[in-house]
Design a protein around this nucleic acid. Structure first.
Length: 875
DNA sequence: CCGATAGCGCTTTTT
DNA sequence: GCGCTATCGG
């Protein structure tokens, strides 16, 4: 495929398309799995739709000889599953009898190991597919895994649960909903819904939004749920006023959810754990069923997910149910549980790639696995099948700076590869321009096509410049992430209608659509309904139906509400007539006038809105026409109809996909954040904005833990590159409308200079040699100040750099010639101020001789200081 | 009630 | 520099 590799033979590089599933793996060597005639899975003989086998991932070719007489059930020789694997991978595939931790470095063939392990369980250990539960974090990962397992073992794979944490739990909860006090058609609130509900709750509690911001309450409640702390437990230990208010809000929030027959994302996990703990017979059911549990990306699990895995597995060995001192079971029903041996657990992860601590993921889960499961075996996968040794060495030396880390050394049997290219631009436009030029060059030389290239950045806001420049020079690109399809206003509006139809008691979407499109039901009318609801102790949706009793409501408003009620009744009629999701959606678009409003609008944006709604309608139709898939026990994997559609939509909140390699096409450049990049790989990677304050992000720099997470993010970014890696930064960058000078990212210094080809250094960039950092032995452009050879971008009337000693901070920044020497500060520097005392520099902005610094003086507060005058001294 | 405008604040975000 | 929210005037 990529001509990039013509002179650098690496194993595994003829693997899939650039944006293909992350862990690329060595191709099958030998003839692929052969078949033996010992297939025993007769229980799963089902008819196979025509063409089923044509849709498999081409990266794992399934030779025609795979099937006996073209029959649908491949039977695998266990040994051939191990072909082409290294010793550690083999061990991971065949290991049996105790909990297994696979530490899989980036690009070490993790997915291959997982899928082959599953196939091996079936082929060699007589495990039934229905006994397998494989959990991932994303639908995409689940889909890929299922597909690849199916390619290995055939349709038997359908009986396995291969799903995300959330869909697995929803499936359990639907089945058990009755004993938990809600109906099986419960709604699922996404982050935006939760936020909305919390805002309502805070308003009801008369909380001052300045003092008790609903946003932070939402986040805190989410954290509590991730820690499995329910509202009562929290209320019992709330101490200060803030905590007590939070406890109140949490309780009311939960009450409202329950009234709305809804669960939020975090509830889905927490409630499942509660279920398994509270109902031993439910736990027994799942423990008997799932004898093999595999968890991907274990480093990203939070406490609730950790406990879920533990409950499903049956705990670590020796961790039985509670007993009294006499050895009697506290709960007799639990006696049954004790008889079930724990399931075999296999978790895969890489602590160095844990980048979601901010969402509650705790690296502890993977670090302490061996203590949690004392009989555990650990296997380390260090051989990399993705990148050149140069790239791996760079990644290794960066991640090594993290403390408390299990040592790991990625290596490849492949080539050294070309050097990493570094580039220092004057500003962010220059950076984007360089990247565009470089892609052009690679393209002309035939070294890479746009589809091979990815541009990574720390924050979404950084994508704009690249878009501007790429549009100007005519490079095809696609931005991944940002505002997602299901987060778009029009999509959410229309889905809100569907949700109300599916669950009339769900107040959050109901209030959303009450006046959308505009129909004369304003805040005042809404408040009246709310008052009625609390007066009569009924829910908001019920109050709405009794508008006539709303005291003091203007006749006009009341009429509007009645018309709305009629509208909803009519739509409900459509639902009751047995129409499918697509037809219901169409009725909503028509009857509400939503579509008409968009179509008659002159706003050009509304055109794309209409397209998005058409897209949504297409999704609904597709869902409707899907064949129902049934699990082995006859329960449907997805429920049909409107509730099923809504569940799908709630749990698959990402339809923006990474661009596919479209046949012979040259593909498009992929732009995305570093977080989104996790799990992907590209022949050519540009890591941009390599500046302290940008990456690592300003907010993460003062905290050692967060800084380590940023470093892991850097590690993730570096290891996405197969062949060519570029690191770029801008001396001057405008953020939030304000220009600011940023020093080189500390991560740059952590890469050995010998690996780097410095295409343009700080000395050549910007006004007079900005950017070398203290101790800059790395590639941070450690040349001396020097004249602005590259022609600085012409501000600051560029004096030559008067560097203040070896630790130059953000380079020169002496004020005008005659001014007293101005202190040069870098983010993170410690300073003293004549009046405020000790402080830490949070940020530095503004043009060279007019620079402002934000300094955190602790108890004295955070001050903005004009450095020209400020009586500060660097320590 | 609705549209316009001022003001604030602002990483990352698998579900 | 932008997008969401709160507030005001019509």
């Amino acid at each position: 495929m990529s001509s990039l590799f013509d002179d650098i033979p690496l194993p595994g590089l003829d693997a899939p398309a650039p944006a293909a599933p992350a862990e690329d793996e060595p191709p099958f060597e030998g003839d692929g799995p052969a078949f033996v005639d010992a297939y025993e899975g007769g229980a799963y003989e089902e008819e196979i739709p025509d063409g089923l086998f044509q849709s498999f991932d081409p990266s794992e070719p399934v030779p025609a000889s795979y099937y006996r007489n073209g029959a649908a059930h491949p039977v695998i020789d266990p040994d051939t599953l191990l072909d082409g694997m290294n010793p550690q991978q083999r061990e991971a595939v065949v290991h049996a009898g105790s909990p297994l931790l696979i530490i899989a470095g980036a690009g070490s063939g993790k997915t291959r190991v997982l899928t082959h392990r599953i196939a091996h369980l079936l082929a060699a250990r007589h495990v039934q597919p229905g006994e397998i539960l494989a959990i991932t974090f994303t639908n995409k990962a689940a889909g890929e895994m299922r597909e690849r397992v199916e390619a290995l073992v055939g349709p038997r794979a359908k009986a396995m649960w291969v799903s995300t944490f959330h869909s697995a739990c929803v499936r359990i909860l639907r089945r058990e909903s009755k004993r938990l006090g809600f109906t099986s058609s419960f709604s699922i609130y996404d982050a935006a819904d939760s936020q909305r509900l919390m805002a309502l709750v805070c308003r009801d509690l008369d909380l001052d939004p300045k003092q008790f911001p609903p946003k932070s309450f939402t986040a805190k409640v989410s954290n509590l749920k991730n820690e499995l702390i329910d509202e009562d437990t929290y209320a019992a230990k709330a101490e200060n006023p803030m905590e007590r208010k939070l406890a109140e809000a949490y309780a009311l929030y939960q009450r409202r959810l329950r009234e709305a027959n809804a669960l939020d994302f975090d509830d889905i996990i927490m409630t499942t754990v509660n279920l398994l703990q509270a109902f031993p017979d439910a736990a027994e059911h799942y423990r008997r069923r799932f004898r093999h549990i595999l968890v991907d990306e274990y480093q990203d699990t939070n406490h609730a997910q950790y406990m879920l895995v533990r409950e499903l597995t049956g705990g670590a060995s020796g961790q039985g149910p509670k007993k009294t001192v006499d050895g009697e079971f506290v709960n007799p029903a639990e006696a049954q549980l004790a008889e079930i041996p724990p399931a075999e657990l296999c978790v895969v992860g890489d602590a160095d790639q844990s980048i979601y601590a901010f969402r509650g993921a705790t690296i502890r889960n993977i670090l302490d696995f061996e203590e949690d499961y004392p009989s555990a075996t650990t296997i380390l996968l260090e051989q990399n099948y993705r990148s050149t040794q140069t790239i791996l060495t760079a990644a290794n030396s960066v991640i090594e700076r993290n403390s408390n880390r299990r040592k790991k050394n990625l290596w490849t049997a492949g080539a050294e590869g070309v050097k990493i290219v570094s580039y220092v631009a004057d500003d962010e436009h220059g950076e984007a321009q360089f990247i565009a030029d470089e892609i052009d060059k690679l393209s002309d030389k035939g070294d890479a096509k746009p589809g091979d290239v990815a541009v990574f950045y720390r924050t979404n806001a950084q994508s704009r410049v690249f878009e501007e420049v790429f549009i100007r020079v005519g490079l095809p690109y696609k931005v991944v992430g940002g505002v997602r399809f299901y987060e778009r206003k029009e999509v959410r509006d229309v889905l809100a209608y569907l949700r109300v139809l599916a669950n009339p008691e769900d107040a959050v979407p109901l209030r959303r659509i009450l006046n959308v499109p505009k129909r004369g039901i304003g805040d005042r009318a809404e408040a009246m309904i709310e008052a009625l609801a609390s007066r009569e102790r009924i829910s908001f949706p019920q109050a709405l139906l009794r508008v006539d009793e709303a005291y003091g409501m203007a006749a006009r408003s009341a009429n509007a509400v009645k018309k709305f009620n009629d509208l909803m009744a009519k739509l409900r009629g459509v639902v009751e007539s047995g129409a499918g999701p697509a037809a219901i959606l169409e009725a909503v678009l028509e009857e509400t006038g939503y579509l008409a409003e968009l179509q008659t609008s002159t706003d050009p944006q509304d055109e794309t809105r209409v397209e998005n709604l058409q897209e949504l309608a297409a999704v609904a139709l597709e869902f409707e026409q899907e064949e129902p898939v049934e699990g082995p026990d006859g329960e449907p994997v997805t429920q049909p109809g409107l509730p099923g559609f809504l569940e799908r939509v709630a749990l698959v909140a990402d339809s923006d996909q990474i661009p596919d390699e479209d046949g012979e096409g040259r593909g498009v450049i992929t732009l995305m954040t570093l977080h989104t990049a996790k799990g992907l790989e590209f022949p050519v990677v540009f890591l941009t904005g390599m500046e302290d304050g940008v990456f690592p992000h300003m907010r993460a720099m003062t905290n050692a833990k967060e800084l380590e997470e940023e470093r892991r993010l850097a590690y993730v970014g570096l290891t996405r590159a197969r062949e060519r890696l570029y690191l770029s930064r801008a001396v001057l960058r405008s953020a939030w409308g304000q220009p600011s000078y940023n020093p080189a990212s500390r991560f740059l210094e952590e890469i050995p200079v010998t690996l780097v080809d410095e295409r343009r250094t700080a000395a050549a960039a910007g006004p007079s040699g900005f950017g070398s950092r203290a101790g800059g032995s790395g590639l941070g452009g450690s040349r001396l100040g020097g004249s602005s050879a590259g022609g600085g971008s012409g501000f600051g009337s560029s004096q030559s750099g008067r560097r203040s000693g070896p630790a130059a901070g953000w380079g020169k920044s002496a004020g005008r010639m005659n001014d007293r020497p101005m202190v040069t500060l870098a983010v993170g520097d410690r300073v003293t101020h004549d009046r405020f005392g000790l402080g830490t520099v949070v940020s530095v902005t503004g043009p060279a001789d007019d620079a402002k610094a934000t300094i955190d003086f602790g108890a004295e507060g955070t001050k903005q200081l004009l450095l020209r005058y400020a009586p500060v001294e660097k320590l």
